[in-house]
Write a protein that binds this DNA or RNA. Structure first.
Lengths: 205, 205, 205, 205
DNA sequence: CATGAATGAGCGTTCATTCAT
DNA sequence: TATGAATGAACGCTCATTCAT
């Protein structure tokens, strides 16, 4: 059972994802959440702070799983990387609305308080990627490393773009029942292939 | 010399790019364009129609260059592809504001009239890519083709993500004077490498 | 030690004095009094009733001292009058906040319940003044009496205006330490002089 | 014929006078002035600025008449003073609403922008009074001068208090038709008497 | 003679748009 | 293919108050 506060948060997130922050009115959110118009001020202080709270709520613990994976000593570095990417894909799919907001905020640059979050978030991912590359190189598993910025752009760009456009692609390709799951499986395989190539990893599957 | 109408269009585009459609007021646009407050209604009918007009204005002839390239018979298919991508990168950089709007609108799904444009735009690119792949395969230049959706996601995702985040990357990498041009050159080389690999193209540079 | 109820009362009085009734929120009062937000409804019923209660609280026994003075048979009537005025000045200074509220309410005429209080209060003072004048005339101490309304206006008008503006005057006259006490002493002497003149009282000091 | 702007101004002044600034809503003002709810923002920018504009509108040229009187060389100083006071009384009666607002603002001290006006206004009056006193003394017409602050308090305090309370006094004194005009005449005579006494002026009427 | 979450009306203001010229 | 005054709906938010505990 959701608390009233979380209830507002979830509905706000969904509407912000669909329409954007400015185009979503507090009245709309409250109507969707079936709460009184003054509850946003009551629980969050303001519309802006509600927006920030969504970021706090969704970003906490976002990257911790990745570091747990890094410590799994029985795995090869490439598999750690692929596992982290799988996890990232799952996260984007689960927190679909939030990742739409996140992408939009990366395009905007007029909300200082969320920019701070996003910048930190992005730098954490860049550090993580760097660490993986270093490990792979040190262990002799990776023969080369591409420019970090481009590797990151390809991984996140491919994942987000392909997930965003899934319905367009489905339509273009006349996909039917079960399209999405098959699509995700293929996406993972596709990324695996690209990464192995980019990192100069020996092929063994 | 810009016509009054174009003058409004350009300023509107810039503001929409910076702040989003809903967060930009018509007053703001008119102030920026230094025109009377009722000029938007006068020239475009409404704020919504002004927005659509930006799409019409910027999207016309967007893909025609690509088809001219396709007809350059002296070029190898892979080089045609790379030329088209280079041209696309230039276009994104030149029409920076518009591509920010475009990306945001791809995330939104609440503006039917622009969705129509975007969907058409995207399908045109998918068709173009398909055509290139077919040609390359037919001529024996490409040994394999990845799933169209993923290829498209990687190309546009990598380009847009890396261009959007250029300042973040510059900061993260402590880049100085001339960073951007070097960055673009490297991006093109990086994409060339990935594409050649994905298409099973023989290495010759 | 103040009761919780009085605690609210005192803080409300101070805030109403500083900002006016309408501009002071119940939240503000409760915060200042460090009590729960529903305590005003609990103790007083409503914000309006709290305001009325301040009037009841401060006006009770306001004029009783004056009637005690009237019975001091060893005093000359003029001295009774001056004693009452001194006492009034002290009262205005002690209940500074309340007298600010009172003055403002005399200007307003949109609060029926406080208007009732004020009208009664003012009439009591007019009656008191009338009684003093009658006594003085009867005893042959006063040779003349000015129009009651004007006498009252001069006494209260001079006192309240000069006390309200004390900081402005201090600034205008470059007053230093001890300015206020000296100012009050002079004010009393000034009023004494005027009253003796207006009442045709023989000078003897 | 009033301009729309002045129309709003006059109705706002009246409502502010009756109920105070905070207790008067912009909707109320617009309803009274029979204009659209957004006209306040349109003409004045905000409710606060409308309030300030009332001050600018009413205070301009407030004291100029007094200085014209000062230059009437055929008049005795005491008559100049009395003429200025008569003019002041007329002004208070004509701009009744504004003087109610003014008095309330003198009690409040939480509106910096009007405080500035009022402080200046008051200091101008104090200077004027000072000038009159100096002239009277220099010419030998005045034998003494009371403390400026008290003289000012008595003059303005008596006038404003007696004018504010006119209905209360009328009620208390069972006044009928023509009460007010008679009351004003008596007030002027009363002030004349007090002033002559306070200034040590020879009696000649 | 207490609490604090919750309410809904109303606040000042901004919005895209319309209208008379 | 112009103007700017004017409109009324909607905005985010604050208000005094209520209600279940």
């Amino acid at each position: 059972m959701l608390s009233k506060e979380e209830n507002i948060l979830i509905h706000a997130e969904q509407l912000f994802a669909e329409k954007g922050f400015a185009a979503t009115s507090t009245r709309e959110i409250c109507k969707a959440a079936n709460v009184n118009i003054s509850m946003i001020a009551y629980y969050f202080g303001s519309k802006d702070k509600l927006f920030e709270r969504i970021f706090e709520y969704r970003m906490q613990g976002g990257i911790t799983y990745a570091y747990q994976v890094l410590e799994m000593d029985h795995l090869k570095t490439i598999d750690k990387f692929l596992l982290i990417i799988d996890k990232y894909i799952e996260r984007v799919r689960t927190l679909k609305s939030f990742y739409l907001i996140l992408q939009r905020e990366q395009i905007n640059n007029n909300n200082p308080s969320t920019q701070k979050f996003i910048r930190e978030f992005k730098k954490n991912y860049l550090k993580l990627f760097q660490e993986i590359l270093n490990t792979g190189i040190r262990k002799g598993e990776f023969k080369q490393t591409p420019e970090l910025a481009f590797l990151h752009s390809t991984v996140t760009g491919t994942i987000l773009t392909s997930l965003n456009a899934i319905t367009t692609y489905k339509e273009f390709l006349n996909g039917g029942e079960g399209f999405e799951e098959e699509y995700i499986t293929q996406l993972k395989a596709y990324l695996k292939k690209i990464l192995k190539y980019l990192l100069g990893h020996e092929k063994n599957d």
